[in-house]
């Protein structure tokens, strides 16, 4: 159950991370700050992959590189066999701060992707309706983001990413700013949404319960520079129970393996 390699179905990967590293110029401009080193992994179709690690390790940097928002200084990322060289609508992104466009209504936010890609008007409308329904926000079409609660905003963020019908969804600690109750609820909601509309999801979090609750597979990252410490494939039946003995055992196992030095 824990050790992964043999376990995963050997289909063609939808995303491949090949020896990816990323350094930034340090503040004085002389040295280099290495953030990521030697990242190698694959992501398979309709898999829910969680990148899990503590604190400010390079999780977001890694996610940005996978999504094409940032370029690695070493190695390459391939999506469906093609090298990733920039952002593309085939890859959807859900942000921690939601990053909704504050001057647009909920429906304009959700419809943004289809509209900028010049899909037919009817198709845009249909998608707005479908995905607002999927996240349970029918009736809030004309609201502005500032009028919504944090959880609702994050639902809009998810619907906006879904509306482009991407192959892969990237989620950067989407529930990090929510209070604990809303967070549990949103985790369940996300699981429902994902089971209803299967997508490949790469999800970043620093919360072990969230990781275990959602993941098909967890990649444990460590700090400075960030690299892969361990992989776990999680085969517990969904929906999972936070106090199930197996859940608790895995939780202990992974937490023990975490590198807590910063």
């Amino acid at each position: 159950m824990e050790r992964s390699e043999g376990n995963i179905k050997k289909k063609n990967p939808v995303l491949e991370c090949r020896n990816v590293g990323r350094s930034f110029d340090s503040y004085d401009g002389k040295g280099k700050n290495e953030v990521l080193r030697g990242m190698n992994f694959e992501v398979y179709e309709n898999e829910f992959l969680v990148l899990f690690g503590a604190g400010q390790c390079g999780k977001t940097t890694l996610l940005n590189i996978l999504a094409g928002l940032d370029m690695p200084t070493e190695g390459e990322v391939y999506a469906n066999g093609e090298k990733v060289s920039g952002p593309a609508p085939e890859r959807g992104f859900v942000y921690q701060k939601t990053s909704l466009f504050p001057w647009m209504t909920v429906e304009d936010n959700v419809g943004f992707g289809p509209k900028v890609r010049h899909l037919p008007e009817k198709e845009c409308k249909e998608r707005i309706r479908k995905y607002l329904d999927l996240v349970g926000l029918t009736g809030f079409e004309k609201s502005y983001p500032s009028q919504l609660s944090g959880g609702m905003r994050q639902r809009v963020g998810i619907a906006r990413a879904y509306a482009n019908e991407p192959d892969i969804m990237f989620m950067d600690e989407p529930f990090g700013h929510l209070d604990a109750q809303t967070r549990y609820m949103m985790e369940e909601e996300l699981q429902r949404i994902w089971q209803q509309e299967k997508r490949t999801v790469i999800f970043v979090t620093n919360n072990i319960e969230e990781a275990l609750f959602l993941a098909d597979r967890i990649i444990l990252l460590t700090n400075c520079p960030t690299h892969i410490k361990q992989e776990y494939s999680i085969t517990m039946q969904r929906p999972r129970d936070y106090v199930d003995p197996e859940f608790l055992r895995l939780r202990q196992l992974i937490t023990d393996n975490m590198d807590l030095t910063l």
Partner: peptide, 22 residues
Amino acid sequence: DPELMGAARMLGANERQVFFKI
């Protein structure tokens, strides 16, 4: 907010659309 521009690009907006819509 650069993240808003990133979000728009991610959703498929080209540079002209980023300029006028964001």
